[in-house]
Design a protein around this nucleic acid. Sequence first.
DNA 1: CTGATTTATCTTGATGTCAAACTTCTTGAC
DNA 2: GTCAAGAAGTTTGACATCAAGATAAATCAG
Lengths: 178, 178
Amino acid sequence: MCGSLDVKINTGKNDGMDHVDKVLEQWRRARPDLDVGPMGLIGRVGRLYLAYLKPMEQTFARFGLNAAKFDVLATLRRAGTPHELSVGDLLKSTMVSSGTMTNRLDRLAADGLIARRPHPDDSRSFLIALTPDGLALIDRAVEAHVQTQAELVAGLSAEDQAQLTTLLSRALKAAGSN
Amino acid sequence: MCGSLDVKINTGKNDGMDHVDKVLEQWRRARPDLDVGPMGLIGRVGRLYLAYLKPMEQTFARFGLNAAKFDVLATLRRAGTPHELSVGDLLKSTMVSSGTMTNRLDRLAADGLIARRPHPDDSRSFLIALTPDGLALIDRAVEAHVQTQAELVAGLSAEDQAQLTTLLSRALKAAGSN
DNA sequence: CTGATTTATCTTGATGTCAAACTTCTTGAC
DNA sequence: GTCAAGAAGTTTGACATCAAGATAAATCAG
């Protein structure tokens, strides 16, 4: 007596179900004791993050960059003239480990996009500056990046964009990360 | 005459500004020609993703797992009895490269959490099954995971959670990833 | 049947990341 | 002054990931 119902729902290939809906449906069948409501919200945040990341990485690639390199160059660029920060400043802005930052700076220096010089007031420290090439590149890359981002949200109405931004801010506070 | 204004706004350490607000403010000063509206939305999605990911990774670590391993075990678990899928099935569900999946399966097999066996109908293929240890572990881990996720969104009202889920779904469709 | 193509998975080589250990320099207590 | 404690970056070792190439088996065209 439940055979037809099983077949009907099985594998969840119904109407407007997205990937997250299908996963939740599977969990409900496999572990009906679990409340998967939060998983739906958090899962969609993850999927949206990936959906945004891929096109942005493609844009970066057009300029010989990836998200990691873009991140460092953009941090220096938006800091304003003279586009120079210490390694520690970059660490605070970018939330990666110090070893990761060393690696990123090595590669950017090899590309001629940044230059290290000793910090005049602290010999343990280094100042990292955009080279002229680095400045020219990030200025072009960020224009393309902004354009890509505009396209990614173009399908949302202005009102939806504003509401989504508000709710995301609230969610960030609720998650304890301001 | 703009000196005092400059100082007042400089470095953006005002009221309720979060990290994304500060970045946008820096861009507005450094590149006033750019429209950074979409960057605010996309930036918050990224920050929220990270804010969710860190506590979830800590939960996984309590069970000797990381997000990659949890992902595979959970896919097998929610597929239902006999908790067995081909490598290709796992690839479709998890969106990683085939080399990555091989690596994940090697490590899970070394941990005794999954077992490979030849596919009875196709000698190119393998069936991957949870071992009894793997099943017991993922059943405990997913309970803790659901609990962690509940805590992460607990600061949002039920209405905000529902509205956010709706808008995220809309944003996913708008970004061309359903 | 047989050769060509496609499919399923694994292997290889290059990157990127982190945690923890390490080096060098600064600062603070006395 | 001098020594201990802390801070700024770098190095090391272990993983994780991907793209592209390799291997082996299934399928298809004729």
